[in-house]
């Protein structure tokens, strides 16, 4: 199994039944799997904050949603994370590709990349960082943590996770 398949299998097998997404080139493989296999309900959204709203409503209705976005979209979601998820204690799983880190060539990604961990800290979202395929079980850990502690969690998928395959 390649990285995308491994991530996909964990998302599917650990109770997530709805994915809200805004695409990122790093997430292309997972998104393709989600769309091809049709095992998970998937709603592409127009903006990350909108995804947080849909996820919250779906949680109220009994679903276990995950949001699949690039870390830049975290910035678009801060008010919803605090004044919706935190205010009503609604646990959502954020799976984010992390651009703007080591080896980033696109300058525009760097400012948001630098503050991503701090933003997650500020919002009180416990975060797992996955840098290599060896660390992929952290995704399971994070999902289980969210379910057991009834809280939102963040998983940052680093670019190096995919570059080791190339």
């Amino acid at each position: 199994m390649n990285i995308d398949q491994k991530l996909y299998e964990i998302i599917k097998d650990f109770g997530i039944d709805l994915v809200l997404s805004v695409p990122c080139i790093l997430l292309k493989g997972i998104l393709d799997l989600i769309n091809e296999r049709k095992e998970l309900l998937h709603i592409p959204v127009t903006r990350e904050e909108e995804g947080v709203g849909i996820a919250a409503g779906a949680y109220l209705g009994g679903k276990r949603p995950a949001i699949l976005i690039q870390n830049s979209g975290l910035g678009n979601s801060i008010n919803a994370i605090t004044s919706l998820l935190e205010l009503y204690n609604i646990p959502i799983i954020f799976i984010m590709s992390h651009r703007g880190g080591k080896g980033e060539k696109i300058l525009a990604q760097i400012p948001m990349g630098k503050i991503t961990n701090k933003l997650l800290d500020l919002t009180g979202i416990k975060t797992w960082s996955i840098k290599s395929s060896k660390e992929i079980t952290k995704l399971k850990e994070a999902i289980i943590y969210s379910q057991e502690h009834n809280c939102s969690v963040g998983i940052l998928l680093q670019k190096s996770l995919w570059s080791e395959e190339i």
Partner: peptide
């Protein structure tokens, strides 16, 4: 958006 999430889950 919240209403949409609720509608699809109920």
């Amino acid at each position: 958006s919240i209403a949409l999430g609720l509608a699809i889950s109920q």
